[in-house]
Design a protein around this nucleic acid. Structure first.
Lengths: 252, 252
DNA sequence: CAGTGGTCTAGACCACTTC
DNA sequence: AAGTGGTCTAGACCACTGC
């Protein structure tokens, strides 16, 4: 295997000596994204330009990009170019929301912000961030409804000081998705998340907003979301009413 | 775009005139798998052999196979060849079981078959197969335990007459996974599944086997599994105790 | 019409497995 | 040593977008 360092470049910080070229390039692109060289939605250099600047063939660039495209990190548009993926496109609006009724689809949704404050977080939250009990977080509480029926009640946590400026007014003015706002105001794009799902009896406050009887169990969904660097960016704990809608998951 | 039909072959039933070559080849391979030309675990022809027999370059064959490999339909082993994927490898034993405790992993599991009979199925089941109320199914009931703790109680349904010969003795003799048995005795490989998850109070029979109090809610997971032809092969309804273990899902 | 990504080819060389 | 998949190249031509 020929590394970029040995063969052409004089990039003395290159640590990927034994990795295939396309893997080295993939990591360089990811690093550029992590460092904000290209922002969500932005056009990145064309395949031939990248091939020239990395001194590899365009086939190698394509192989590196193929993987990033399949991970929804980049988006190719034939004739236009390759773009940094964003949560602000219509198609990815429900990418992380696995909810459907028995007919398979969702009706119009509405989002109501119930509160937004800066405060300490419960243990499960600060531990997910590997932070401390006294650290301050932005806490957002909201209610999602489908067809005017309340379905999801959730508490969302972002760490300070990074998200210090996130406040109620911003949230209420913004008309897109929450992840779209995070991209727009902080330049951070969520690329994947993990959800831990269990069945519980709803908390009293959730039950009140979800307008269900206290005998009705709900899904408890604890999500941790990650951006490019594999560091957690957001944690949320949601309760889903699953009488009409269900959590849908595809296994492959 | 040049189709195989127009250019080289005389395959008069080719309907993929406008698809790229690699897509046409991918479908031909899938069709061969569906028709049982190659069985689970079997070695398929090498890339150069396939390139010769389809009259395309090896790069095109690779592109077709890349997609099938990423869908876990084929497995490449450098130096040995390309094989039809199977559920009998250690790595795919838990491919469809998204269960983990807070430490992230599962202890040893044991499977107890509670019953296996041939009978009519409830509405949700025969409808998922687009069959009729009077149709007969193989019904399997089983209990999965982790670390001796009962966690999953499930009712599994396979349609007759295809699975007529599936019986209690077969199940009790078999030491691998259920999907491994299905591959071994029926030559059918499950490639993906859909799960619909909700929170419910356990049924009385489930509660008894899962040894939980009647105040404890459980996950209700309705799974439909598919083989190559996108026709449903198996339906199961499971109840998961989520006090120690949780349903884990990765979003991307 | 220039520039982009999408498809396809032909072939070199490497890494690995099997005999 | 022979055969397999894995990496990488150089270049042709097509389909699509935007000016």
């Amino acid at each position: 295997m020929i590394s970029i360092m040995e063969s052409k470049h004089d990039n003395s910080s290159d640590k990927h000596l034994d990795l295939p070229l396309y893997e080295q390039i993939k990591r360089k692109i990811l690093l550029s994204l992590e460092q904000g060289v290209w922002s969500p939605g932005e056009l990145i250099p064309s395949e031939v330009e990248l091939a020239n600047s990395y001194h590899v063939s365009s086939g190698t660039i394509r192989k590196a990009m193929d993987e990033l495209v399949s991970q929804h990190i980049l988006i190719r548009r034939q004739g236009s170019g390759t773009f940094v993926a964003t949560h602000q496109e219509e198609q990815s609006k429900y990418r992380f929301l696995h909810l459907a009724n028995s007919q398979g689809k969702m009706k119009e949704s509405t989002n109501k912000i119930l509160l937004c404050s800066h405060q300490k977080a419960p243990e499960a939250v600060y531990k997910a961030f590997e932070m401390h009990p006294d650290d301050i977080f932005v806490h957002i509480r909201r209610l999602m409804s489908f067809n005017l029926q309340p379905i999801v009640f959730e508490d969302i946590w972002f760490p300070c000081p990074m998200f210090e400026s996130l406040n109620l007014e911003l949230l209420q003015v913004w008309t897109g998705t929450l992840y779209g706002l995070i991209e727009n105001h902080f330049g951070i794009h969520m690329i994947h998340a993990q959800e831990r799902i269990s069945a519980v009896m709803p908390t009293e406050i959730a039950r009140e907003y979800l307008q269900i009887d206290k005998s009705i169990p709900v899904l408890d969904i604890f999500r941790t979301s990650y951006s490019y660097g594999e560091k957690p960016i957001e944690v949320r704990q949601a309760q889903y009413v699953t009488m009409e809608y269900h959590y849908l998951n595809y296994l492959s």
